[in-house]
Write a protein that binds this DNA or RNA. Structure first.
Length: 478
DNA sequence: ATGTGC
């Protein structure tokens, strides 16, 4: 472990005040010995830098998938006092509301046999992939405004889903406080042709089988059984979210002097939550988050239609378990030293993991806590977990989001051949359909930390409980 | 992550 960091529990570490100058609170992160080898000093410094920001409450936190990011570390969680604190795009990330949803089907592996290629091709033909992918769907400027305000409900009202889908979605598919005027014309232009598109990088649409049920009671509550075929959608707010982040970062950087905020790193650009600049970022970010929920709703709808065509099953037999955001800032009420407090929780590459009976989770899941969805890297397992009371106490109800990258894209492309990887995965029974073979090299399993170890750590640390392990059978990539 | 770099 790095110099100057204290072990405070089996899997818990503290970065003391003074690790970098002007820290207001300590940093804390969760990590096993096995993952310690992958810990970057730069990511720990970023965790400490976040602790210098005005109004930060209790700790600057990071999950076991911590790695170096823009300003804030990825895997980072930080809460700021609603009245005294700041809001920062670096604490959310460029892909606002990058997230995941998981859907069960009535199919088994036997049903899939011989039809997997047909299914993959059907899915690939209805879900546009790749950087700059455009949708066949026509969305007007007025409709885009409705999408940014109403989120997934916009899609359901047009028959692209069912009302039950919305209940099983974080924020029911739309955050409050979306402010369309805080989204630039350029951001709108980028977002207009991209509703229903997957994008690139680690985004995917994957066919999976529930290979292992670890917690049968919670699995039954979530409605998933061993051997069941599922599909998972992992994507975000595309060009619109990226442009919202870019636009507001520039505004916030130039307002730093006005609010006399001194930063160890300009990438931490932020503004008081209740300033015009802070409010504008929140309003724009909420628009992008709602756009992302709509995007995943439309992709799920297209995928359901493809399944009905290939297998002759009913649309309603494919049930959304849940949809989670991995990159977002939200106002939440938490207990701080026995007193309720409203804070702005930034989760960047982290998942909300609200425990049993927590407000804001679907009533049907109240007994076990909210579902938590952790995507694997290509060819490796994804996980379904549940939130816990421990997460509420220790991490503002948060857990990890997946496997952090350990090899850069450029290094991965030099070390790995995409075509060979595709053939190798095919031998294991995993069919891959990608926009370009080169993305396969960039997304190879070995360029990521092992997600099973990341998930093991949050389980052992009590931040969430493993419910099921899902194995990939076929995947569509950018 | 991203009309992938100013």
């Amino acid at each position: 472990m790095l110099e100057g960091i204290n072990k405070i529990g089996d899997l818990e570490w503290e970065v003391p005040v003074g690790y970098v100058p002007d820290m207001r609170v300590p940093g804390r992160f969760f990590l096993s010995r096995a993952l310690a080898e992958t810990l970057e000093e730069g990511a720990v410094r970023q965790l400490a830098n976040v602790a210098t920001l005005p109004g930060i409450v209790k700790h600057s936190l990071a999950m076991p998938d911590i790695h170096w990011g823009y300003g804030f570390p990825i895997g980072g969680v930080a809460a700021f006092d609603r009245t005294e604190g700041v809001i920062s795009p670096g604490g959310v990330g460029f892909d606002i509301n990058c997230g995941v949803r998981l859907i069960t089907t009535p199919l088994t592996e036997a049903d899939l046999a011989g039809k997997k290629r047909e299914l993959i091709e059907a899915l690939f033909s209805v879900v546009p992939t790749g950087v700059g992918a455009r949708s066949a769907m026509r969305v007007s400027n007025k409709e885009l405004t409705e999408i940014m305000v109403n989120g997934a409900r916009w899609a359901v009202e047009r028959g692209l889903g069912t009302p039950e889908d919305l209940i099983r979605c974080e924020e029911e598919g739309a955050m409050p406080g979306a402010e369309p005027d805080a989204v630039s014309a350029k951001a709108r232009q980028r977002g207009m042709p991209q509703i229903g598109t997957l994008g690139a990088g680690n985004h995917f649409l994957e066919i999976q089988v529930a290979r292992e049920i670890i917690d049968p009671e919670a699995a039954s509550v979530f409605g998933i059984a061993e051997g069941q075929i599922c599909f998972m959608v992992h994507c975000g707010s595309r060009g619109l979210g990226h442009q919202v982040a870019t636009d507001h970062l520039r505004t916030l950087e130039s307002a730093l002097g006005k609010y006399q905020i001194r930063l160890p790193d300009r990438q931490l650009a932020c503004a008081p939550i209740d300033s015009p600049e802070g409010r504008a970022y929140y309003g724009g970010m909420a628009c992008a988050a709602n756009y992302a929920w709509t995007n995943r709703q439309v992709i799920m709808h297209e995928a359901r239609k493809a399944f009905t065509q290939v297998f002759g099953i009913e649309y309603d037999e494919m049930r959304l378990i849940y949809d989670v955001a991995h990159n977002v800032a939200k106002f939440e009420h938490h207990d701080v030293d026995g007193a309720p407090m409203e804070v702005c929780v930034h989760r960047k590459g982290a998942t909300r993991a609200f425990g049993p009976q927590a407000p804001g989770i679907p009533r049907e899941y109240a007994a076990v806590g909210q579902p938590v969805l952790i995507p694997g890297s290509m060819g490796t397992s994804s996980y379904l977990l549940h939130g816990t009371a421990t997460a509420m106490q220790k991490t503002w109800g948060s857990t990890c989001h997946g496997a952090g990258r350990v090899l850069s894209r450029s290094k991965a492309k030099k070390a790995i051949r995409g075509k060979e990887l595709r053939e190798h995965l095919a031998q294991e029974g995993i069919l891959v359909r990608a926009h370009r073979d080169s993305v396969l090299a960039e997304e190879a399993p070995e360029v990521y930390k092992p997600s099973h170890e990341v998930v093991r750590v949050v389980h052992e640390a009590g931040l969430s409980g493993i419910v099921a392990r899902l194995e990939p059978l076929g995947v569509i990539k950018g």
